[in-house]
Design a protein around this nucleic acid. Structure first.
Lengths: 110, 110
DNA sequence: CTCGTATATGCGCTTATTTGAATAATAAAG
DNA sequence: CTTTATTATTCAAATAAGCGCATATACGAG
């Protein structure tokens, strides 16, 4: 699958999409949803983060169309809207694993 | 290639890597370098952006280890360090093409 | 209608990011 | 050493992101 160089507009859309991935909490949410759908409370417990934080990150993912919601009574279940997300993220992890691709400010943390 | 759910630390590294992609100029640079290596001046002309802007974005990509440089005299040629980058970006473009994955504030621009 | 659970949002604050313009650093040539 | 071409960096200002805390909304039970 060889795609052309994107136009200015497409690159902007792509950048906006990638905004989903620049936050570690959102990445953890996406991987959690990749295992199976979760509701907000479950994600809150699993990630050990305040509920408001989880909700707001879920809103980001929802606005980008990366997750879908189903309501059952008062609980809302989130699931991935497109499994290729994980495919792309896994490629990036492969790059990370092989490469020296560490931000300068992170080298200390290893 | 099925990867495990990342740890907190790995997800942070992944988020830092994805920081490369949240700027349309950096995406355009990466795709330009995917065609063939370029020096700074060439990128400046091709993207029609101020040189300082290009240089600073190149520094971001360099610090992340996503591009490599070769010096020939006074000109510095940049090339992709890992072709899988484009692979991942193309997947995301596929998601964009198929999906309704548009940020609310972007729908107007179409 | 009221209460309790589940989820979303508003506010204020702090910290990051992006940018143009100007300036510095680097290297080859004369 | 001075000049010129190329690339990198500093600066200040504007914009955007993320957070905790508190509060609001939505739904169902009783």
């Amino acid at each position: 699958m060889l795609l052309q160089t994107p136009t200015q507009e497409v690159s902007q859309l792509e950048a906006n999409l990638c905004y989903a991935f620049v936050d570690s909490t959102r990445i953890l949410i996406l991987y959690a949803l990749n295992e199976h759908p979760h509701n907000v409370t479950e994600l809150t417990l699993q990630l050990g983060a305040p509920q408001s934080k989880i909700s707001r990150h879920l809103k980001v993912l929802r606005d980008l169309g990366l997750v879908r919601t189903t309501r059952r009574g008062v609980t809302i279940t989130y699931e991935l809207a497109d499994l290729r997300l994980i495919e792309a993220l896994d490629i990036l992890r492969g790059i990370l694993r092989d490469g020296i691709n560490l931000k300068a400010n992170l080298i200390a943390e290893l």
